[in-house]
Design a protein around this nucleic acid. Structure first.
Length: 153
DNA sequence: GCCAACGTTGGC
DNA sequence: GCCAACGTTGGC
């Protein structure tokens, strides 16, 4: 079982939106490094941190779980979709999704500034300068630190 | 809204 | 296959 962090802009799709629909394909990822994590490494039962970017309060909003195997992102084949990719073909998909199901919403967003100040998270992908990866692996010890912080919100 | 950091594209 | 130009991300 692995741990991941998924970024989303809450004005586009927030953890409340995820809770409302219960389960959602995590579509629109158009970065190859992120794609490789989804396609090659994600498994049902993996735990997810949902991160709100761009909009205050910035930080980790709660948790979800992967509830499907990876499969091709339908939006890549749809000319009307924002994430349409003319070079992607059904017989050779470029982009993948997993279904993500809501698990819990934290009482408050766990702020990025707190994460950056925590020595236990010094090596976390999220806290590195210039890190823009929207799908990130989270280490077990990092997950544990975040559980601790979330429990004290 | 600015802009630094990063990723992708495409001419050569 | 290098790298300049361009586009995007995302904290501030």
């Amino acid at each position: 079982m692995a741990y991941w962090l998924l970024k989303t802009e809450p004005n586009v799709f927030s953890i409340d939106d995820l809770k409302a629909v219960d389960k959602e394909p995590w579509d629109g990822v158009r970065n190859y490094q992120a794609r490789n994590f989804i396609r090659d490494d994600m498994k049902p039962g993996d735990k997810i941190l949902i991160y709100h970017s761009r909009v205050q309060p910035i930080g980790i909003a709660g948790e979800a779980e992967i509830v499907s195997e990876p499969y091709p992102d339908a939006t890549q084949f749809d000319p009307a979709a924002k994430y349409y990719d003319a070079k992607a073909k059904p017989e050779a998909p470029r982009w993948y999704v997993v279904d993500v199901q809501h698990r819990r919403t934290y009482a408050q967003v766990l702020p990025l500034s707190d994460l950056k100040q925590n020595p236990g998270l010094d090596g976390m992908v999220l806290t590195q300068k210039g890190s823009r990866l929207s799908v990130q692996p989270v280490k077990e010890n990092e997950w544990a630190v975040i559980q601790e912080l979330a429990a004290n919100l």
